[in-house]
């Protein structure tokens, strides 16, 4: 059962070591990772069905881009935060102003980005 006081996160990250690190970091910051995936189709499905408050999405998933996942999250009126090893120019409309974490990032950078994003 999820803790009702904790904000719930959907993590989409294809690199497992990053996913594990993110999960630990988010946990340290008081968030709860309720679902995670590194595969596009599965992530879209989770974005449509899972119970979460916001999504943290790696843009590049094994050479595919995670924008379809972001679309599904937005369709539910939930916020999105991106993470990427590419520069900010990878963002396309309507996500140009979406908070973007540049890898690698520290716990503090993650915290600040999430605070700025209002999640």
């Amino acid at each position: 059962m999820s803790d009702p006081d904790k904000r719930r996160v959907l993590v989409v990250e294809d690199e497992v070591l990053m996913a594990m690190l993110l999960e630990d970091m988010l946990c340290d910051l008081g968030y709860e990772v309720v679902a995670h995936s590194g595969e596009l189709d599965q992530a879209v499905q989770l974005a449509q069905t899972a119970a979460f408050d916001f999504a943290l999405l790696d843009i590049n998933l094994n050479g595919q881009q995670s924008f379809p996942v972001a679309d599904a999250v937005r369709a539910r009126g939930l916020p999105v935060v991106f993470a990427t090893g590419y520069g900010s120019r990878i963002l396309v409309p309507p996500y140009l102003d979406t908070p973007l974490l540049q890898k690698p990032f520290s716990l503090e950078e993650l915290r600040r980005t999430l605070v700025t994003a209002g999640v």
């Binding site: 690199e15 990053m18 990427t84 090893g85 590419y86 890898k103 690698p104 990032f105």
Partner: peptide, 8 residues
């Protein structure tokens, strides 16, 4: 991208 991912 690869460099940053590797650093991450």
């Amino acid at each position: 991208h690869r460099t940053r991912n590797l650093l991450a």
